[in-house]
């Protein structure tokens, strides 16, 4: 049989009914264009992340050159004299975040155990809904509440009580102002609680029922079952949830900025005003007058970016491992 060439073939294969004859080669061209456009957009996601890193390094270059590693340990932040050190903000960020974790983690794990193991079925959906609602309220609204409700309450009730009972400790010294490290840590705790609680609940729910049944059948109480059968298997996932919460706390900006007092000082007292990496950027970035000032602020942002990037990768590795392990365990 004599074979016609490809062009003839295409014509020969065009369907007899004339209404779609026009489509000729368009179909494949369309496929190629669409595939290309989709790939380009997918590349856009990677490019946005990489671009963020590159742009922030570029923006902070003059500060990096000027201050070098000393930037991290320098305690003076004086825009007027163009002296920039990150130490007060690193201190403020770490302390406020750890304070938030210390308050939020026990409560969040309690909430997760309640939602995953104890709550009656009818309560689980509304309770989960409330937890999600907490996560949906904008940060600036928490900040507003912090300014007008939380800070005055701390100033008038909590801080005097703490000072009376534990005033001999350096952490609870100084005047009660409300605004300060304690308020910052507390509002962060409130904001990261839903994240930690809902991720922890998810990993607990993923623990196979057979483990619980095994413990119960041996005569364990409900809490012993949680202790013996659930928590050990959910541990890695809960640690991941805590790291995710820590990542949020480190980067959380508005609410902290509004209640932490914004002073670039390192103080032992939790009552004293402080500042975080995010809060100083929020307060000063739009008004930074000199190039070096802007570069120093950008370098603070770069540090924040790098730390949260590493934390997120770490947390995802931990949570991901649990997720992957769970079906295997179920299968066996």
């Amino acid at each position: 049989m004599q074979r016609p060439n490809a062009l003839d073939l295409r014509r020969a294969l065009t369907p007899s009914a004339s209404f779609w004859a026009w489509t000729g080669t368009e179909a494949n061209l369309g496929d190629r264009l669409f595939h290309g456009a989709a790939a380009l957009c997918a590349f856009g996601v990677v490019a946005a992340l990489a671009g963020m890193g590159v742009e922030m390094i570029r923006a902070s270059l003059s500060s990096i050159e000027r201050f070098g590693l000393g930037f991290v340990t320098e305690v003076t932040w004086d825009p007027v004299r163009e002296l920039f050190g990150a130490a007060p903000f690193i201190f403020g960020t770490i302390v406020s975040s750890l304070l938030a974790l210390a308050i939020a983690v026990p409560v969040a794990v309690g909430v997760a155990i309640f939602l995953a193991e104890l709550a009656p079925a009818w309560l689980r959906t509304p309770a989960s809904f409330v937890v999600e609602l907490l996560a949906a309220i904008p940060s600036v609204v928490y900040g507003l509440w912090g300014v007008f409700v939380l800070a005055p309450w701390l100033r008038d009730t909590v801080q005097p009580a703490l000072a009376a009972a534990l005033g001999f400790l350096p952490f609870f010294g100084g005047p009660a102002r409300g605004f300060g490290m304690l308020a910052g840590g507390l509002i962060l705790a409130i904001m990261i609680l839903p994240t930690i609680a809902s991720v922890s609940r998810d990993v607990m729910v993923a623990v196979p029922t057979s483990y619980r049944e095994a413990a119960l059948a041996l005569g364990a109480t409900r809490f012993e079952t949680v202790q013996v059968a659930v928590l050990p298997h959910a541990k890695a996932g809960i640690v991941g949830a805590v790291i995710l919460g820590l990542g949020r706390a480190l980067g959380e900006t508005m609410a902290v900025t509004m209640v932490i007092g914004n002073r670039a000082e390192i103080s032992a007292s939790l009552f004293a005003p402080a500042a975080t990496l995010a809060s100083v950027i929020a307060n000063e970035y739009a008004e930074a007058t000199s190039d070096l000032y802007l570069a120093a602020l950008s370098e603070l942002g770069l540090m924040l970016f790098a730390v949260t990037l590493i934390l997120n990768i770490g947390a995802r590795l931990l949570v991901g491992k649990v997720g992957r392990a769970a079906p295997g365990v179920r299968g066996g």
Partner: peptide, 10 residues
């Protein structure tokens, strides 16, 4: 129909 240039769509 497997000839080069033939569009599977058609």
């Amino acid at each position: 129909i497997f000839e080069r240039g033939v569009d599977p769509v058609l």
